[in-house]
Amino acid sequence: MKNKFFLFSSIFIFVIIFSIFYKSLHKTNIYTPSVKLDKKIPEYSTEVLNTDKIISYSEIFDTENFYFLNIWSSWCVPCRDEHYLLMELHKDKNIKLVGLNYKDNIDNAQKFLKELGNPFNIIIVDIDGVQAIEWGAVGVPESFLIHKKKVIKKYIGPLDKNLLIQIKSLIK
């Protein structure tokens, strides 16, 4: 009697373990931080590209407008690929683009913009990657859709056409 109890309970436990392992097989093992929406933009002050001006984030994102913050760098290959989409988004009057130049060499960054065009209304400089962390970013490229000083959407990795359509419909 006692034996049977142990037999069934141990089989039962192993069946549970089995099903948990089975389920976990279909989950990705790569962690991406979940996006908490309606998160306030960080408080930070930063340098603007090509000027000596120091400006705070609350000044940059001051109006009720939509803002699109894009973290980019001239050495980052996917940034090059998504750049034409940013140029297209720039044409939209409802949104202002903010570029966060990540760990870049100023000359290279300027060459990059000369070659591919400058979609940004303002470019802020993040020389050591500290600001990217303030935003909760992991790498380049990464983009944030901001409205009323809150992050309403986050895009990890390069944009594509579908995402662009999504963004455009969001800001209408």
Binding site: L7, S10, I11, F14, F18, F21, Y22, L25
Partner: peptide, 13 residues
Amino acid sequence: LIFLFSLIILSII
């Protein structure tokens, strides 16, 4: 996974 748990159940029995 299936192989492992068959072995476990076999040995429990």
